[in-house]
Write a protein that binds this DNA or RNA. Structure first.
Length: 212
DNA sequence: GCCCAGGTGGGTA
DNA sequence: TACCCACATGGG
């Protein structure tokens, strides 16, 4: 795992993620980007910002139908408006609407709580924990699976938790490392090997498949 | 026009 | 558990 990380870092450099101006914006983006192109998410977040709606209180008070209209560019807007509402309601119920308080709580506990919120699955929960809360919870996404499958480290049929454990158990629990690693995997997928995991010129081409 | 994108939950066997 | 499906916009 460390070898893969070093090769990606050497090729792409520091990524400084997540692309957001605040921890709360990370939470919103994490929900909006579910199975959706990031460019569309940016449009939706720009709408919220322009209207001054990008705060826990504003999103709590806005009617769900109106919220759906604002986030329309992100796709699945009827589903995601309800999911955002669910997260906001949970945030107020558990942490008084404060991302900072959520970030200050025991993160394994927060993860369990987040997974109970309708519309927040494992990847979204881990994205919020890592990028909004600054906690060492590794994020596994489509790109991550594709990459590991291409290297022969997984078959591709493993469950989320199993793949996540592969990282968690073979890396030190370092927030900066987890943050950068996931960002590098995404960058690698977008810039270089979107469809074929190991195309010519790939920085991982000479990566031994059994590294850990 | 066709394919895909930083998932999730509900239904069915 | 393991599939199958709905959910939707916008860019290449």
């Amino acid at each position: 795992m460390t070898k893969i990380y070093n090769l990606l870092l050497e090729r792409y450099g520091q990524r400084h993620w997540w692309p957001a101006e605040s921890p709360f914006e990370v939470c919103v983006g994490a929900i909006l980007t579910q199975n959706t192109n990031w460019g569309n998410v940016e449009k939706a977040i720009a709408n919220l910002k322009r209207e001054g709606l990008l705060s826990p209180r504003s999103l709590r008070d806005i009617p769900v139908e109106m919220l759906a209209e604002k986030i329309r560019p992100a796709g699945y807007y009827n589903v995601k408006s309800v999911r955002l509402k669910g997260f906001i309601d949970w945030l107020f119920a558990k942490y008084d609407g404060s991302v900072e308080r959520m970030a200050g709580a025991e993160w394994r506990q927060v993860r369990e709580e987040l997974l109970k919120v309708r519309g927040i699955g494992a990847e979204t929960a881990d994205s919020i924990l890592l990028y909004a809360c600054g906690q060492p919870s590794f994020v596994v996404d489509t790109y991550t699976r594709r990459l590991l499958a291409g290297l022969g480290l997984i078959t591709g049929r493993e469950g989320y938790e199993e793949v996540r454990c592969l990282f968690m158990e073979n890396l030190p629990p370092d927030v900066a490392l987890f943050n950068e690693f996931h960002a590098l995997i995404v960058q690698h997928a977008k810039e270089h090997c979107r469809k074929k995991p190991l195309c010519p010129g790939c920085p991982l081409h000479f990566c031994p498949a059994n590294v850990r």
